[in-house]
Simulated assay, not measured.
Amino acid sequence: MKEITTKELAQKVLAGEKLYIIDVREDNEVAQGKIPGANHIKLGDIPDKLGELDQKRHYYMVCRSGGRSGKAATFLEDKGFDVTNVAGGMLNWEEELEK
């Protein structure tokens, strides 16, 4: 599984790159803030949302610490998606949050 640090991802976000970030945390966690522009799809909902994802896109998966997003990344990779897990998750995110 490919991984990226939060600092590397933050550089891409701040540079204005067109990114597809999926936050797999629970509703109450996301309510505290998420990476600007990230889409929220709870981990348990990923299988039901496959039809809404584009296999031509590269997705960055994020959660609180990197565990749940790692599971989501592995699941999506097995389905043919190009994904990168955000190592350390939101615990390591130091930039502004979208609320």
Rank of each mutant, 00 (worst) to 15 (best):
M1E: 08
M1Q: 11
M1F: 03
T5E: 03
T6S: 09
T6I: 06
T6Q: 07
K7R: 12
L9R: 08
Q11C: 03
K12N: 01
K12E: 04
K12Q: 11
L14F: 04
L14I: 08
K18H: 11
L19I: 08
Y20K: 14
I21A: 01
I21K: 01
D23T: 02
V24P: 14
R25L: 02
E26A: 14
E26D: 14
D27F: 04
N28H: 11
E29Y: 03
V30D: 01
V30C: 05
A31S: 15
A31F: 03
Q32W: 03
K34S: 13
K34W: 00
I35A: 02
I35Y: 01
P36Q: 13
G37K: 09
G37W: 02
G37D: 06
G37V: 07
N39Y: 07
I41G: 05
I41D: 04
I41W: 04
G44W: 03
I46D: 08
I46N: 09
P47C: 07
K49I: 04
K49C: 07
L50T: 03
G51F: 07
G51R: 15
G51L: 11
E52I: 06
E52M: 13
K56E: 14
K56M: 09
Y59W: 02
Y60V: 00
Y60H: 01
M61E: 01
V62E: 02
R64D: 10
S65A: 12
R68E: 00
S69M: 05
S69C: 10
K71S: 09
K71E: 10
A72M: 11
A73T: 15
A73Y: 03
F75L: 13
L76N: 11
D78H: 12
K79G: 10
G80I: 04
G80N: 08
D82T: 15
T84E: 05
T84Y: 00
A87E: 15
A87C: 07
G89Q: 11
G89S: 13
G89V: 10
M90V: 05
L91V: 13
L91K: 15
W93P: 13
W93R: 15
W93S: 12
W93E: 06
W93L: 13
E94K: 15
E94I: 12
E96F: 09
